[in-house]
């Protein structure tokens, strides 16, 4: 599903990713853990196509094809979704209008008919219930004045509506209390399936109690230094990143 090969990326000349290798198969959930500044968010944004980062070498393959030349919207329509660490507030654009536009953009790209307002409302009804979102929520301007938890829920709602094949969740747990965390995790788990891959980027292992990963990677200073199973996350929590760093340094 996703294959990242020796990826180097920099921002304003400063190299952040220094040769990332990662392979995620369909049906899997991978967690990428790492301390602040290790390049986790950069990796997530580069996958989504943020052009403030320059990919200097390496490649990202999605379904076997390089996506580096694809615009962010094209990647989205192909089924890649990034849940933002800091969802952007857009006053003046209604959440429902935004969601419907996004969904129709994707449908149009895939040669499907656009859906109208009535069909759209029917479609999101279940998703709203799953995420325990109030109906009024979708008529508010996108993320405008939302609490941290509401913003994250809105990300997962978008994901639920767009049904991506590859979802990258960037620190989706930050700023969530335990109840909200469970709800968000439910939303993510509902999307798990044989045809999909999910990459969870997180600082803490807490979220992984609810979204249980198949593979855990440790990202340090722009490189993946360790890969393991679920227990790696617990080990990290126990010993901290410093220990892994030491081991990595030893090789």
């Amino acid at each position: 599903m996703l294959e990242i090969k020796n990826l180097h990326a920099s921002i304003q000349g400063k190299e952040i990713l220094k040769g990332v290798d990662l392979k995620v198969s369909a049906g899997q959930v991978h967690a990428i853990m790492g301390p602040n500044g290790s390049g986790k968010s950069t990796l997530a944004q580069v996958i989504a196509g943020r052009d403030t980062f320059d990919v200097t070498s390496g490649d990202i393959l999605y379904k076997g094809k390089s996506i580096l030349e694809m615009a962010p919207e094209e990647r989205a329509c192909e089924g890649i979704f990034l849940a933002f660490q800091y969802p952007v507030e857009i006053p003046g654009v209604r959440n429902s209008y935004f969601l419907k536009s996004a969904l129709n953009a994707k449908r149009k790209y895939n040669g499907e008919d656009e859906i109208d307002a009535m069909e759209f409302l029917a479609l999101i009804k279940d998703k709203i219930e799953l995420l325990e979102i109030k109906k009024s929520f979708i008529e508010r301007p996108v993320n405008d004045g939302f609490s941290g938890g509401e913003k994250k829920r809105n990300e997962v709602l978008q994901m639920a509506v767009l049904e991506p094949t590859l979802a990258v969740l960037d620190e989706t747990d930050s700023g969530l209390d335990i109840d909200a965390l469970k709800i968000v995790a439910n939303g993510v788990n509902a999307l798990r399936g044989p045809g999909r891959a999910i990459v969870v980027v997180t600082h803490y292992q807490r979220l992984l109690n609810y979204i249980v990963p198949d593979v855990v990677h440790v990202l340090l200073d722009g490189r993946i230094v360790k890969t393991g199973d679920r227990d790696l996350a617990l080990e990290l929590e126990d010993k901290g990143y410093a220990e892994v760093q030491k081991q990595a340094a030893k090789g």
Partner: peptide, 17 residues
């Protein structure tokens, strides 16, 4: 970028804003 990452074309995203 946020709008584009949801599949909305650049020009449409700018128009929406």
């Amino acid at each position: 970028f946020y709008l584009r990452s949801r599949g909305i074309e650049k020009s449409a995203a700018r128009q929406m804003l």
